[in-house]
Design a protein around this nucleic acid. Structure first.
Lengths: 103, 103
DNA sequence: CGAATAGTTCGATGAAGATCGTACTACGAA
DNA sequence: TTCGTAGTACGATCTTCATCGAACTATTCG
């Protein structure tokens, strides 16, 4: 079982504009909410989304490049999880606040 | 001196996607940072911004319609201030987190 | 190996939105 | 009432980006 970390920005490279812009898109926010429910990470394809696989890949890349989530391969699957520790360190309260929004 | 509140969404009407999208634009984030420094509100024109007045008006409208700030007239001037109380109630920690980002 | 599975990349398209200049409105001062 | 100031509204333009289908990569399984 191959296991590899996909490229992502270091904590110091994360920019708040990119994070906010990434979170400000409905589909991506839906992804983030799904990840928040499963701290151990989840395979991209298992999140139910109203878009095609290619669009899904685009959004996951955007979130990863913004520093919101981290992804590693596990065989043919890609497991993503929130970079909660980094985000909480950089912007304490932000993630909690976003996720506290009812629906 | 005329004084009038400009139309804005009720607290219950504020949507987190709109807030995040509004905050995820560099010029608008600059506006929000400026407002955070002056709780008593500030005239739009006094915020130094790298855009023309019409673009500035566009961004202020976007922020107002998203529920991020409130604006009232004071003579010919329009004073804006953050809707900190509403945002903190809806998304506790969000604003603090965003503003804690260094630059 | 070959087939199946999970997911990406690329190019095209259409929609959203950031920007500007110009024309306009509202208010206060003279 | 006329002028100046503060700011908005509108229309045009240009850029960004969400979306898709099709082709591709990588990995596991038989």
């Amino acid at each position: 079982m191959t296991r590899k970390q996909l490229p992502q920005p270091d904590r110091a490279e994360i920019r708040v504009e990119a994070v906010l812009q990434a979170l400000g898109e409905p589909v991506r926010l839906q992804i983030v909410r799904a990840l928040a429910d499963t701290p151990e990470g989840i395979a991209c394809g298992e999140i139910e989304l109203p878009v095609t696989p290619s669009t899904r890949a685009h959004h996951l890349r955007t979130l990863r490049e913004a520093g919101v989530l981290t992804t590693h391969t596990e065989g043919t699957r890609r497991i993503s999880s929130l970079r909660r520790e980094d985000l909480d360190a950089l912007y304490p309260g932000l993630l909690t606040g976003v996720l506290s929004a009812d629906q």
